[in-house]
Simulated scan of single mutants.
Amino acid sequence: MVNFDHVYERKGTNSVKWDAVNKMYKEDDLLPLWVADMDFKVHQPILDAMISYINQGILGYTTSSDSLYEAVQTWQKKKHNYIVEKEAILFSSGVVPSVAIAIQAYTEVGDAVLIHDPVYHPFAKVIKKNKRRVIRHSLIEVDGKFQIDFEKMKEAIQTNDVKLFILCNPHNPGGRVWSIEELKKIGELCASHNVLIISDEIHQDLIFTPAEFTTFNNADPSFKDFSITLTAATKTFNLAGIKNSMAFIHNTELRAKFCNIQEINQQTEINTIGLLGTEAAYRCGEEWLDDLLIYLQKNISTVEKFLQSEMPLVKIMKPEGTYLIWLDFSAYALSDKELENKLIKKGKVVLNSGISFGPKGSQHMRLNIACPNATLLEGLERMKKSFQAD
């Protein structure tokens, strides 16, 4: 069993999560439970693979090896029953860069791109930066889980002549793992209106029983004709800094367009450590991942029990996947800025502001639980302090 309880010092490492917050908020002694990376040490065999390569002393240009492709294919088949032919696998520096490539490849300036609300905030940013129109479709909350109103989604597609839909599965920030029935409805709706689909599946390995993850292309074989799937080992194995991801594109025409934009932007090369880390993670990381999921479930229970006992006004959306928890602070009747200021200035704890994920995120916060349990408890105590009377 991996010791996930060990607390590592990350300050002073140029960490976005730990070192950027003081400059951003101009406050000292902040505890960051925001940016989606983990405070756990990378699995040692992954580090060993990188160290072994570095020790040979020459860091020249590197190609994607056959063994890397095999590792990706084996992992997808074993963990997700997903068959990906080698030629369908493209490497990129990240999922968000791949979203940008896809937007440039499959849409024109001024086209409408649909996203859910709330959803991972870089989606809207990259759509706007590429001069496309952001169309938001609001998710609805039913029995503590996000659901899709398919009639409203259809209306949004028709009214705005949507060309592309970005799906987040598992959903960030709500932790929802979309069912195969929901995925089929999404695919059928988009197919009937000639809407291409980007399926962001970077959290696909972080799933809690009894939830079952289905990759979008497995919901119906025909979906491969009008979709691309994006994923990576980086979220699963705490490797965000190695900058490598995969795009699975089965349709040859879609693949050619994606490759063309990569070449136009000179984005076809991946750094060596990214390639090595991805292969090592998929070859030796399964047991580590099993231990991680157990630990994350323990942390979810910690949050549930603490809020029920100490902060009953805060509603928790229990995640089916990811290591992120969506918290509803609306009972306090604060503005988004007031809520953020209370947590930062009084509690000295940093969460992701819910409004950044879209208008439906107002009065919410996203909590990252991928940290030692002691760190999490300290963060929860700081949250509690934020709302105590002076």
Results as ranks from 00 to 15, higher is better:
Lys224Cys: 05
Gly241Arg: 03
Asn55Trp: 04
Thr214Trp: 01
Lys342Glu: 13
Cys259Glu: 14
Glu182Asn: 13
Leu293Val: 07
Thr62Tyr: 04
Phe223Ser: 06
Thr74Arg: 04
Val99Leu: 10
Thr229Arg: 04
Trp34Lys: 05
Leu380Ile: 07
Cys284Ile: 13
Glu141Asn: 08
Tyr323Ser: 14
Phe258Asp: 09
Leu343Ser: 02
Trp178Lys: 07
Ile157His: 05
Val195Lys: 01
Lys152Tyr: 09
Ala240His: 04
His121Thr: 13
Glu279Asp: 05
Glu340Phe: 03
Asp161Glu: 12
Ser301His: 08
Ala20Lys: 03
Phe165Thr: 06
Thr302Phe: 02
Ile101Thr: 14
Pro210Gln: 03
His43Arg: 01
Phe329Cys: 13
Ser386Cys: 06
Leu327Lys: 05
Gln204Ile: 09
Leu313Gly: 00
Leu68Glu: 11
Asp336Glu: 10
Phe40Ala: 09
Thr375Arg: 08
Val7Ser: 08
Ser65Glu: 10
Asn217Gly: 11
Pro221Trp: 00
Val96Ala: 03
Thr272Ala: 14
Thr231Gln: 08
Leu114Tyr: 04
Tyr82Asn: 09
Leu289Gln: 12
Val21Lys: 12
Phe258Arg: 02
Cys168Ser: 06
Tyr8Val: 15
Met246Gln: 15
Thr74Phe: 04
Ile242Val: 13
Gln158Ala: 15
Trp18Ser: 10
Gln73Glu: 09
Ser245Asp: 06
Asn55Ser: 13
Trp34Asp: 15
Leu343Trp: 04
Ser199Glu: 08
Met50Ile: 14
Val126Thr: 14
Leu47Tyr: 03
Cys284Gln: 12
Ile369Pro: 02
Lys41Ile: 14
Val7Thr: 13
Glu182Trp: 01
Ile249Asn: 04
Gly175Thr: 14
Thr234His: 02
Thr231Ile: 11
Thr62Arg: 12
Gly241Lys: 06
